[in-house]
C-alpha cells in the first residue's frame, strides 16, 4: 500500500470506530449503513470502469441477485446467512460470466446498452418470478454469524463498514498489483496488451466477476438489514445512482467510490424538503460534475494537496 492509501485507510478505520461512539443517533447510523452498502457496489464499479475501462449500467442486476438469492435461501430453505450470502455471490459471479463472455467483445455504447439490458432483464425477472412479485416480500432474517445475530443499528454499522474496510483493503492491494496494472493497461490500449501477452479476455471477465461479487455482497447485506425487499430497489435507477457515486467521487480513485457513495446517499436526506425534486437534482449533479468536475472530488482534492505541498516546499 502506498503512503497516501495507508493514511486514508487509518482515517477510515478511525472514523468507523468513532462515529457510533460520537453520534449515537440511530438516524445518522442508518444513513451511514446505507452509505456503506452503496460504497461496496461503487468500489466494484470503480474498479470495473475507472481502472479497467469497462462500462456497466447493470450493477443493479447483481445487487438484486445478491438480495434475492440470499433472502430466499435463508428464509425458505433456512440456510445460515453467511452461507446464503456466499451462495448469492456465486450466483452473481455466474451471471457475470454469462453476461461478460459475449459482452466483452463490445465497447463503449454497445457495452453500456448491453449491461443496461442485462440489469433490466434481472429487474423483470424479479418482478415476475420473485416472491411477492412487484410488491416484494418481508420477514427476511437478520444477519447472524456463529449464533450471534446482528439486530442493532450499531451492530449493522460495524458489520457493514467492517466489510467495506476489508473490501477496500483487498481492492487497493489488487489495484497496486500486477493484475491492477494489467487492468489499467487494458483501459489504455488493448492492442498493446495483446502484444504483451496479456490475456485481455480473461482479465475482463475476472474484473466483471469481481464487481458483480461486490454488488451481490452489498445486496445481501441490504436485504438482511432492511428485512423487506421489493424489485423497485433494484431498477435501472440504482445502476445510475451507483454510476453517479463513482463519478462524483472520482472514477480514477478507489477512495472516490467511498466518498461518492457517502455524498450521494446523504444528499437526498439533506434534500428531503424538496421531495419531488430528487430526480432533477440527481440529474443536475451528474451533469454538472461530468462537465465541470470531470475528475471527481477525490482526485481534485489530491491535486490541491499536492499543489499546496509543492508551494510549501518551494517556499523553504
Amino acid at each position: 500500500m502506498k503512503k497516501g492509501d495507508s493514511i486514508a485507510f487509518f482515517v477510515l478505520i478511525f472514523l468507523i470506530i468513532l462515529l457510533p461512539v460520537l453520534s449515537g443517533s440511530t438516524y445518522t447510523l442508518t444513513v451511514g449503513i446505507f452509505s456503506g452498502i452503496n460504497a461496496l457496489v461503487a468500489i466494484g464499479l470503480c474498479i470495473l470502469m475507472g481502472y479497467a475501462g469497462q462500462v456497466s449500467l447493470g450493477q443493479a442486476g447483481f445487487y438484486g441477485i445478491g438480495a434475492y438469492v440470499s433472502s430466499v435461501l435463508s428464509l425458505h430453505i433456512g440456510l445460515p446467512i453467511v452461507i446464503s450470502t456466499i451462495f448469492a455471490m456465486i450466483v452473481a459471479a455466474i451471471a457475470a460470466v454469462i453476461l461478460s463472455v459475449p459482452a466483452l467483445r463490445l465497447k463503449g455504447h454497445y457495452l453500456a446498452v448491453a449491461t443496461l439490458g442485462f440489469g433490466e432483464i434481472i429487474y423483470i425477472i424479479l418482478n415476475e418470478w420473485g416472491p411477492g412479485g412487484p410488491s416484494g416480500f418481508g420477514d427476511i432474517p437478520h444477519f447472524s454469524l456463529l449464533g450471534y445475530t446482528v439486530d442493532s443499528t450499531t451492530g449493522y454499522f460495524y458489520l457493514i463498514w467492517g466489510l467495506v474496510a476489508a473490501v477496500m483493503f483487498f481492492s487497493i492491494n489488487l489495484i497496486h498489483s500486477r493484475t491492477g496494472r494489467a487492468l489499467r493497461a487494458i483501459h489504455e490500449s488493448e492492442l498493446a496488451c495483446n502484444a504483451m501477452g496479456l490475456n485481455v479476455v480473461a482479465l475482463k471477465i475476472k474484473v466483471f466477476i469481481l464487481s458483480a461479487v461486490y454488488a451481490s455482497l452489498a445486496g445481501s447485506l441490504y436485504a438482511h438489514y432492511v428485512t423487506f425487499i421489493s424489485p423497485s430497489s433494484f431498477s435501472l435507477f440504482y445502476s445510475i445512482l451507483v454510476l453517479m457515486m463513482v463519478i462524483v467521487g472520482g472514477i480514477t480513485n478507489l477512495w472516490g467510490a467511498i466518498i461518492g457513495a457517502v455524498v450521494i446517499t446523504v444528499l437526498p436526506e439533506l434534500l428531503r424538503r424538496f421531495e419531488e425534486l430528487d430526480v432533477l437534482v440527481y440529474g443536475l449533479i451528474l451533469t454538472l460534475s461530468l462537465m465541470f468536475f470531470k475528475k471527481g472530488l477525490v482526485p481534485i482534492l489530491i491535486e490541491k494537496i499536492k499543489k499546496l505541498r509543492g508551494f510549501a516546499v518551494a517556499k523553504h
Binding site: R178, R181, C193
Partner: peptide
C-alpha cells in the same frame, strides 16, 4: 512492468490478500 505480465503469475486473490 506491464511488459513483465506474461512472465509472472500472481492473480486476483493472491494480489488482493
Amino acid at each position: 512492468m506491464v511488459g513483465r505480465h506474461a512472465k509472472t503469475k500472481s492473480g486476483f486473490f493472491s494480489s488482493g490478500f
